[in-house]
Design a protein around this nucleic acid. Structure first.
Lengths: 234, 234
DNA sequence: ACAAAAGTGTTCGTGGTACACCCATGT
DNA sequence: ACATGGGTGTACCACGAACACTTTTGT
């Protein structure tokens, strides 16, 4: 299948091979909750269990590409935030499987979003049950990863519409971190960062005074990654 | 090879398999420099190149176990800091290989330490050359990973002897982060954390006033992992 | 008018940074 | 005595936390 010199074939042939999948923890933020997309396990496992969407790597496919493809297949989204989390190895009735876990963050209101397959559902991360046991680990790890990562990188905006109110932002942070934040300090903090662009527009369809809508300035943030010497041992 | 029900064999057999190795970036701190252990590539690649120590996963072996085994084989150390960094997939003359990168931090003065194999050498991370090209990525990524991780977790003490002076600590942080730190502020910061245990002993064999020797209180640190709500976007 | 959330400033405490002098040891 | 690095304290500034009232909109 591969063209290779004879001297190399011998060494290459001796590499042991292992079954591998790329599984995607697809998060969204909906109804003020962090949710994850799970599917009924079509294959060999118990039918009452939910599992993470995943797939195998095709020939010559990069890991990131596999993750994007899994996302595309289950949501029809091409262009979302996708990042590698960690690799696990799990026992499996058909021999152990190596699983590279990815995290994807999508906007539940995205126009292209479709959940085409039967047996796919959004589950609130705070009320998970009947998860295939190895996927439970993976999901817990990914959730903790997200909690940590969101505090040092503006990932969360990938869960929101392009234009969002400060309230939505705050709800998102509160839901993911599972804490309460002071509204005034929250505003002050983000305005001080100077990474929100005021669109001039306002919310509508809200039963109270509408809030301003903002956009996150990803470009400016990229440019302003500063050195930052912490040593704080969180 | 695996005992499995017939109904499961079918699904299991269909899993595509991929060549996989676990590679270890083994760091030490020596002569006030961060160094990494590399070996001459015994196998199929150019003999003038250095590569990271690695190995395949044996049957039923966990990923962490493979990494520990690689470390043991090259250093004779059983009990060091070892942590997964990231998984890569690289083209390879004999077909692509999936590589799970691990980082190990060892104390260069450890009594058990032996570098048994020929062709193994410590290289300063600041003057790397002739590295097998895919291992270069992996090493760069692991070094950045270490720089980030050391600022939020006390990994660095694994590079030092059990008892160390504040000067050694500071040199270690300065070398890894490639910055200068103020000595007084550095002391104040660490004493404020209250995680250093004064052993009462002093350095000797130094051509100046000897410094106190400390031990890091790993246990206390474990217990005191606090919530910490940052959102700082470093 | 009322309910509900938007918007706005000040005070206080903590923690980081900058900075200079005396002390203990080996040569 | 001298050189080398160990050990200490103070002043300033930035940032996070706590906290209450007025404004705007929809019902």
């Amino acid at each position: 299948m591969n063209k290779e010199p004879a001297s190399i074939t011998a060494a290459g042939a001796s590499y042991p091979r292992i079954a591998m999948t790329v599984d995607c923890v697809i998060f969204c933020f909906d109804e003020n909750e962090l949710k994850v997309l799970l599917c009924r396990n079509e294959q060999e496992q118990s039918e009452k269990q939910w599992s993470l969407p995943g797939n195998f790597a095709a020939e010559h496919e990069e890991l990131d590409e596999v993750a994007c493809r899994v996302l595309q297949q289950h949501t029809r989204l091409d262009d979302a935030f996708v990042e590698q989390v960690r690799t696990f190895i799990h026992p499996h009735p058909a021999g152990r499987v190596l699983t590279v876990a990815y995290c994807a963050l999508i906007n539940i209101k995205h126009e292209q979003l479709q959940i085409p397959e039967q047996g796919l559902h959004w589950h609130s991360v705070n009320s998970l049950q009947d998860i295939a046991f190895d996927h439970k680990d993976l999901l817990d790890y990914s959730y903790k990863w997200l909690q940590k990562r969101i505090q040092e990188h503006p990932l969360g905006f990938n869960l929101l519409p392009c234009r969002f109110s400060l309230r939505e932002m705050q709800n998102m942070y509160e839901a993911i971190l599972d804490i309460r934040l002071d509204r005034r300090n929250f505003r002050k903090k983000f305005f001080a960062m100077d990474l929100l662009i005021d669109t001039g527009a306002y919310e509508n369809d809200v039963p109270h005074r509408p809030g301003r809508l903002y956009t996150f300035d990803f470009r400016k943030h990229e440019e302003s990654k500063r050195s930052c010497t912490g040593i704080t041992f969180l």
